[in-house]
Design a protein around this nucleic acid. Structure first.
Lengths: 255, 255
DNA sequence: CAAATCTACTTTGTCCGACAAACCGATAAA
DNA sequence: TTTATCGGTTTGTCGGACAAAGTAGATTTG
């Protein structure tokens, strides 16, 4: 145990980091609210007394962290980090760690069941209406695997929203981003895949309407098992998530 | 539906983003392995044909995303994004969204139970040894709430590691980072809090040793319920996580 | 009077060149 | 063998510059 120190640890962080930290502090502490303008780069230069290049490096850090964005006219403003954007980073990390589909499946089984059970308990009328709207759209695009896969992903996002638990919502997102891109592949390879998917969604919605937790849990499990069986027709569960993800990322980038 | 287009959508992303994306592609695709050097800024300037300021902005983006780091001599190298670092961003996001302890508790109940059940099934001898080591340390610091709280957080991290499911490991981390900082407070306010905590850990370890899934699930639930009861003595579950987190963050920064 | 257009100013994205401090490697000195 | 010294790199920061795009106010037009 050292004696009480004479000197405080000196802060050797580079200037751009200090700029980023200073702005971050203001936002996290709530002194700057989401949507508030941060001021122009020139103003920040004046306030911090550093060069514009330095300010810009700090800004990039915060932009990437999701605390800052540029509005339509590219002026800076504070913002609430969107789960979705952060989840993308996490998904990428999972890919790099060469996570397998088995891990993804197991985790999703837990997360989606929890999300469903909460949704059954807490879904509001609006939540139900959104889910119903999604279901209707799904039925229209039943013959288009890509569109149906997108509907499926949305359905589960809506379900997580209906759980009214943002932690759960956030926790499931990275796995879902890797999990659901495979849906298109499965739906187009497995006969009856599309109709079974929609049937499961219909029963899930019905369970929510009746506040029947057991039915909800049962149908989400069945839905995921369907995915698993479908997936195993095409590839091994122990394959790393890497390839699928790469292809999907490419497709998204084209949009 | 548009006719097949004559021209491809031109890419108007700013140069620093393209630099970041180009490097990201190389890393995510595996052509650059974690640990590989990226080359000096000057080299990147040459390769991309843009200014150094531009390159540096791109580098900041990737550094923040965890794909790039600077080694001891500040040279750039690729790296695997650590869950922990990303989880910190997520935790911050949860704070900004004013998540409540109730949400945190419910999600953790799901995530920790799943993590425990997997650990019971799959923990290796090394996992068990690590958990046992942690338990021994806990018993030594039973009178020191801060140290005990740290042990508790570590215990659950080790448990997640023992689950051998990296998706689960990642999914629980953000919640845990917000959840466990309160442990110190609870342990020091609730008589028997420390001993109950250690008893729960002991039973959890025992359940893993005996591969007794039901016992594992039961004890982790009990452990979390203990937390909840303790917490409710001090504050309301419906309080936003914000204040606690802010104080904890300050404490960590001082370290 | 309202709408459209033009013009002057601001802001961002990028570039150039520069320099001190830190770091690396190798050689010289103890 | 260890320590000290000395160039050569590399990073972090700086100042200034300019084109493109956006903004807002003034001006023209219907």
């Amino acid at each position: 145990m050292p004696a009480s120190p004479l000197f405080r640890r000196i802060d050797v962080a580079p200037a751009y980091q200090k700029v980023a930290e200073a702005i971050e502090r203001e936002i996290v502490s709530g002194r700057i609210k989401p949507g508030d303008p941060i001021g122009t780069e020139h103003e920040l230069v004046r306030q911090f007394g550093v060069n514009r290049s330095t300010v810009r490096e700090g800004i990039r850090v915060l932009e990437e962290g999701g605390l800052l964005r540029r509005d339509s006219s590219r002026r800076l403003q504070a913002c609430l980090p969107r789960y979705n954007k952060l989840a993308t980073r996490l998904s990428r990390a999972l890919v790099l760690h060469e996570v397998t589909f088995r891990e993804l499946f197991e985790a999703s089984m837990t997360l989606e069941v929890a999300s469903t059970e909460s949704a059954v308990e807490r879904a509001t009328e609006e939540d139900i209406a959104e889910l119903a709207g999604n279901l209707a759209r799904s039925e229209q695009v039943i013959a288009d695997p890509a569109a149906l896969a997108e509907c499926d992903a949305d359905f589960h996002v809506l379900m997580a929203k209906a759980s009214h638990n943002r932690v759960l919502q956030l926790a499931r997102e990275p796995a879902a981003q890797l999990f659901f891109p495979t849906t298109e592949m499965i739906v187009s390879h497995v006969p009856q895949g599309a109709s079974r998917l929609i049937e499961a969604h219909r029963h899930l919605l019905e369970a929510i309407r009746r506040r029947d937790k057991a039915a909800g849990a049962q149908w989400i499990r069945r839905h995921l098992q369907d995915w698993r069986r479908g997936f195993e027709r095409v590839a091994s569960l122990d394959r790393s998530v890497e390839h699928m993800y790469m292809e999907h990322a490419k497709a998204v980038r084209r949009k």
